[in-house]
Structures are given as structure tokens and as C-alpha cells.
């Protein structure tokens, strides 16, 4: 999706410079593509351990306490993503029912980009639950191994 955004932006500059034409829909499309890619990329990056974090407390604590802490933080993460998912879904429903459009000449329907929120946060929750199960059952040794060297 980000690749499409790159190509579209270049197309936009090209169209404006060479054909001296208007660029109306490209700007908005690329922004929405970026947002969608970000939200839908959340669970993948979580799985790939790509989100930056500071493992200071877990390193200081004994293994058992560290495990408990990591479960607590995962539950809290699931909770807060639940909030984002729930109100994101509600917002999406409003844009859908009221037929809100973006305030531009092109004026796309807003429910399309807003859909990325419930979908992205929803999938993210599923990934977090999977992580929680892994920690609880002790499968998540990869995490702790990496830290040893």
C-alpha cells in the first residue's frame, strides 16, 4: 500500500508539472492509504516484535515477576486497544449511517478510510491475545532468549 502511495504521489507531481493539470484526488488517496497501511500493519509489526519498547523492569525483576508483569501489560494493552476498537467502530458506524464525506472537491465517503480503525485495532487485539496465550503457556521463550546476549 505504501508502494502505491509512492507511485501515486509521483504521478501527482508529474501530472502537475508536465501536464500542468489539477491534482485533486491523489493527495487524499495517498493519506488514506498510509493510514490504512499503518493500522492494518499493527498486528504484523507486533508479531515481528517491531514496536520499540524498553525492557528495563522485566530485566531487573526475577523471571516469575517478569512474566506476571508482561501478562499485566498485555492485558492492559488489550484493554486499551479494545477502547480504540469499540469507539473506532462506533465512529465508523456514524460515518456510514450519516453518509459523511470528506470536505474536498473529490469528497470521498469517509466510512471507507475510517473502516481501517475497527479492522486494524480488531486484528491487533487478536494478535495481542495470541501473545498473551503464548506468555501464559510459556511458549514465548524467544523473547527472553534474545535479551540474554
Amino acid at each position: 500500500m505504501i508502494l502505491i502511495a509512492v507511485l501515486l504521489t509521483c504521478q501527482m507531481i508529474w501530472v502537475r508539472k508536465i501536464n500542468n493539470a489539477s491534482t485533486v484526488w491523489q493527495t487524499e488517496t495517498v493519506i488514506y492509504l498510509m493510514i490504512a497501511a499503518t493500522l492494518i500493519g499493527l498486528p504484523y509489526v507486533q508479531r515481528a516484535r517491531g514496536h520499540v519498547s524498553v525492557d528495563l523492569l522485566p530485566l531487573l525483576l526475577p523471571a516469575k515477576a517478569a512474566k506476571a508483569l508482561s501478562m499485566v501489560t498485555l492485558v492492559a494493552a488489550i484493554g486499551v486497544m479494545g477502547i480504540m476498537f469499540f469507539y473506532g467502530l462506533e465512529l465508523w458506524l456514524v460515518t456510514w449511517e450519516k453518509g459523511w464525506r470528506s470536505e474536498t472537491v473529490w469528497g470521498p465517503r469517509l466510512w471507507i478510510p475510517y473502516l481501517a480503525m475497527p479492522v486494524g485495532f480488531g486484528l491487533f487485539i487478536l494478535q495481542l491475545i495470541a501473545d498473551l496465550v503464548a506468555v501464559a503457556t510459556g511458549l514465548d521463550t524467544l523473547h527472553t532468549d534474545e535479551r540474554k546476549h
Partner: peptide, 17 residues
Amino acid sequence: GKAFEQMLAKAGGSIAS
């Protein structure tokens, strides 16, 4: 504003947002 973009485009200008 979008109404101005439409009017300027009609008059033969190109719009960059």
C-alpha cells in the same frame, strides 16, 4: 475551499492542494 477550486478550474487554472 472546494468551491473556489472548482471555480478556478473552470476558469482554466490548475489546482494544487
